[in-house]
Design a protein around this nucleic acid. Sequence first.
DNA 1: AGTATAGTTGAATAGTTGCTCAAGTGTCAA
DNA 2: TTGACACTTGAGCAACTATTCAACTATACT
Lengths: 129, 129
Amino acid sequence: MTLEERAVRDVQHVDRRQVAALRSVVDRESAVAVADLFRVLADPTRVSIIHALSVAELCNGDLAAVLGISESAVSHQMRELRLMKLVTAEKRGRMVYYRLTDTHIRHIFADTLRHVQESSPNQHVGRLR
Amino acid sequence: MTLEERAVRDVQHVDRRQVAALRSVVDRESAVAVADLFRVLADPTRVSIIHALSVAELCNGDLAAVLGISESAVSHQMRELRLMKLVTAEKRGRMVYYRLTDTHIRHIFADTLRHVQESSPNQHVGRLR
DNA sequence: AGTATAGTTGAATAGTTGCTCAAGTGTCAA
DNA sequence: TTGACACTTGAGCAACTATTCAACTATACT
């Protein structure tokens, strides 16, 4: 018996129609898309990069300087951010300048920063790094 | 020479004051806090759970039925979501009912869902799972 | 030409994550 | 009490991730 079949059969606590309705609302595909977007924002380095770029346009080396990490590490992250279309790269001479593509992301990001700063000024429940 | 020292020294493209200013704006601690919050939302299963709970209050087994995964898997995820204070658990008899704690998260989540559905209806650039 | 600078890339690696499985706890009903 | 049910927990593992290092390309300067 597949999980799919179990899902339809084994519901005993909510009525089946509600579960059936939820199963159609919560489709896997958009869940993956949403998770992918959040995944990009789920790393302190990328968060810092986006934070910095929300203040100024910066090149790869400057980002490394601002964050205090290697240029290679920045470059790897920029590749990811570019792939996910969160930043745009513009080459000028031998430098590559990055800026945020999307104002929507800016808002989501700002909202979350505010949320974190308001709701838990001192407690921190996340994992160790 | 530490990365910290490099950071102050090696800046050649932006003026040093700007980088110094950015270095104070982009502090590691809140970057980690923001990333931690996003990390919770960066998994398709947890996204689906939050999506389902934004529609109805559900117990562990129902969530398993709705998502089509094992109760154990759900329970593991609920522990995380509880730790991060995104959901609240309420035990009634032998069932544990979950609901979303925070309306702020609801908004961030809804924003992002809308963003994903609007901005990239068909393309998908994320990793395979 | 030659050299230095800015950035990219691929492999390797240490650490993390999400799930499964098996064993456990607590609750209800016969 | 016995059994079934709802859920939790810990160990183990396969997959993924962020960084480092070394080698590379491309541009600029002399």
